[in-house]
Write a protein that binds this DNA or RNA. Sequence first.
DNA 1: CTTGCTGCAAACAGTTTGCAGAACT
DNA 2: AGTTCTGCAAACTGTTTGCAGCAAG
Lengths: 147, 147
Amino acid sequence: MILEKKKAFNAYAAKQGLRSTRQRDVILDVFLATRQHLSVEELYLKVKASHPGIGFATVYRTMKLLAEAGIARELTLKNGQARYEHQLAGEHHDHLICTGCGAIVEFEDETIEQLQREIAERHGFTITSHRMDLFGLCPGCRGTTAG
Amino acid sequence: MILEKKKAFNAYAAKQGLRSTRQRDVILDVFLATRQHLSVEELYLKVKASHPGIGFATVYRTMKLLAEAGIARELTLKNGQARYEHQLAGEHHDHLICTGCGAIVEFEDETIEQLQREIAERHGFTITSHRMDLFGLCPGCRGTTAG
DNA sequence: CTTGCTGCAAACAGTTTGCAGAACT
DNA sequence: AGTTCTGCAAACTGTTTGCAGCAAG
């Protein structure tokens, strides 16, 4: 599936007249190699580990590109920092976010999606995207009396 | 209902040993006098209109206080800017946000709330809060061939 | 060769903070 | 009088941008 994504990006790049560069390859690889929701900084650190020359701005620029290409999805967490997750074509999922340890669990619920569509329709809105985040404590943090 | 809120804040302030100041009164009044979702800057401008002496930082500090007191709710929009809305005790609502004109429509859906609780339970999470935002075009912006 | 991309550092926007003086209790 | 709060400006954080040199096509 990593290859698929790479192809998807190459297709997008070709269509947009973008160049294929070493940096973009590296950043895409690093992004695809992880399953977590990464901040740009985390991404940058991982990239720099193997390719020290790559700069901060390039990571930002490339992640924006991946988002436009439909490969990454940008999340705006509560602290205002952006995080990126994999975007699976056509699919959508939401998040359970543990306020204790920061863990993020993904879930999908077709019934809710359907209700959202109905609500939007009722208000005459044409929905292009949505986000739903449930904040609370995960099983681990609930047990631990972490003060 | 404005009085209720003021009392609620006074109660909170008393409990926390906070002082009642002119600035806090003014900011609370301005906040309660509007039904929109205000950014701190907008709030600051409104406050300054009638009370030019009040500073930016005080508005920030006071809004944080109102959020802690359960009177205001802080929203994190996509651009990372904070906005505040009224928090109605016990109630919760979500948002339809027009990406064209920025309009925010509030809605409530008990079925979705219920489904959210079930999902959380299924994953062993104890939910403390949640947010759901649907982004798209409102009827007005959909009609207008803007762009 | 031409044009887009990169890396750097400086610019930016929104928010927070340190401090001296003012105001509440 | 004691202490919290305020206003200012400077600091900070995350992100974007201008520019000279580099590299892909």
